[in-house]
Write a protein that binds this DNA or RNA. Structure first.
Lengths: 185, 185
DNA sequence: ACATTGCGTTCGCCTTGACGAACGCAGGCA
DNA sequence: TGCCTGCGTTCGTCAAGGCGAACGCAATGT
C-alpha cells in the first residue's frame, strides 16, 4: 500500500491548498459548503477528524474530486532515466519491468504513438486543467517537458509533466519515436 | 464535477465489495481494523456517516487505497503496425501523433518500461479479470500476445491483449525495450 | 478618530458517531 | 437433542464532531 502518514495531515494541507487555489476565504468556503467555519478552521489546522459528509460538502464546494483531498499531491515534473526506476517484476534477469507511473483514481489515460522529425519545436498550448502527459522515448533524441524547463530525453527515458502548462516536444534527431500517454481527469 | 449521488451509499457498497473480495467476515475485518463491528455493520448497511479515521483504518485493513472506498466502481488482441492507425493531431508533417487506445471510463492504467533479452519466453500467468495490457515496442523485436497466438512486433508497433488469459513476452533480439500500459478496472 | 466590514480563531452546547454488550440465528459436533 | 462457535444485527452509553456566538485583529471609509 502506498498510503502513508496521517490522513488528517494530508487533508488539512489539501483543504488549504485547494482553497487558496480557488481564491476563497475560509468563511466564504464554509458558507458555500454549508459547514460551520469553526469546523473548517479546525480541519485546516489539522485537529479534528471530519466525517465523510463534511469532506464531501467541501469537495463539492471546491469543485475538486473527493479523492484529491485525501491523496497527497504528486510532483510536477518527473524523469526516470533508462535503467533507473523501481523494477517491479523481475523474477528473471532477462526480463525487467519498471513501474513508471501508477494510475491515480479516476484518471483516464489515452495512449499515443508519436513520430517526430527535427527542424522545429512543437509548442503545445496548455490543455484543460488536470492533464498530465507521460512520454517514453523509443528511438532518437528529443527535448521534452515544460517550455520553461525542458528535458533532453534518450531512448528508454521516461518523463511526465503537467499538460495544463505550456510544454514542448522537439525532436533532435531524425526518426524520433515516442510513446505518449495523455492522462486526464 | 463527476461525483454524483450520496457518498454514503457508495462507501457502503465499496466496503461490502472489498470485504468479500478479500474473503473476510464482518467481525474479522472489524477486529483487524480496530473498529467495533457494530460500526462496520451500520456502515455497510448505508446508515451512518463515518469519520475519516474510521474509513482509513478499514482501508488499511482491506489493503486497498483510501480512494477506492469513496470512488464508485464503474464497469482480444489488436495490433497497430508502425505507420498505420489514425493520426490524430498532425498539424505539421514532421510531428504525427497516433491514437493507439482510448481509455475506457473508470479504467486505471499503470505505465511500465520493459527491457527483455532473448533466450526464453516469459509466460505470464493470467492476472485478475478485466486486465488489458497494451505494449508499444521501442526497440528490438519481440513475440507478444496471447500464448495461443502471439504476434511478432517491430519497433513502433502496438499490440494489446487481455491480461486475464495466458500471455507471453519473448524478446527475439538483444536490447529489446517496450513501453507497456497495464489497464485494470 | 471612530465605526464598519471581513477575516480566522476560540468557546460552550448539543447532536451524532463509535464502542461494547447482549441478542437472534445458523452450522458443526458429541 | 443439547452445546458450542462464529456470524451479523440491535441497544444503551459516552466521547467527539459539528454548530453558532462571541472574540481579536487588520484593512477600509466616513
Amino acid at each position: 500500500m502506498q498510503q502513508r502518514g496521517a490522513p488528517l495531515e494530508v487533508i488539512a494541507r489539501s483543504l488549504r491548498r485547494e482553497r487558496d487555489r480557488v481564491g476563497l476565504s475560509l468563511s466564504e468556503l464554509a458558507k458555500r459548503a454549508g459547514v460551520a467555519k469553526s469546523t473548517l478552521s479546525q480541519l485546516e489546522s489539522g485537529s479534528g477528524n471530519p466525517s465523510v459528509e463534511t469532506l464531501w460538502a467541501l469537495s463539492v464546494a471546491l469543485d475538486v474530486p473527493f479523492s484529491r483531498l485525501v491523496e497527497p499531491p504528486q510532483p510536477r515534473v518527473q524523469v526516470i532515466r533508462a535503467g533507473e526506476g523501481p523494477a517491479v517484476f523481475s523474477e528473471r534477469a532477462d526480463y525487467v519491468a519498471t513501474l513508471l507511473a501508477s494510475c491515480p483514481p479516476h484518471a483516464r489515460r489515452d495512449i499515443y504513438l508519436i513520430t517526430a522529425e527535427p527542424g522545429g519545436k512543437r509548442e503545445s498550448h496548455p490543455h484543460s486543467p488536470g492533464v498530465v502527459e507521460h512520454v517514453v522515448l523509443c528511438s532518437g533524441r528529443a527535448l521534452i517537458g515544460l517550455t520553461d524547463d525542458p528535458v533532453t530525453v534518450e531512448p528508454g527515458d521516461y518523463v511526465c509533466y503537467p499538460g495544463d502548462l505550456p510544454h514542448v516536444f522537439e525532436a533532435l534527431v531524425a526518426g524520433t519515436v515516442a510513446c505518449m500517454v495523455s492522462e486526464h481527469v
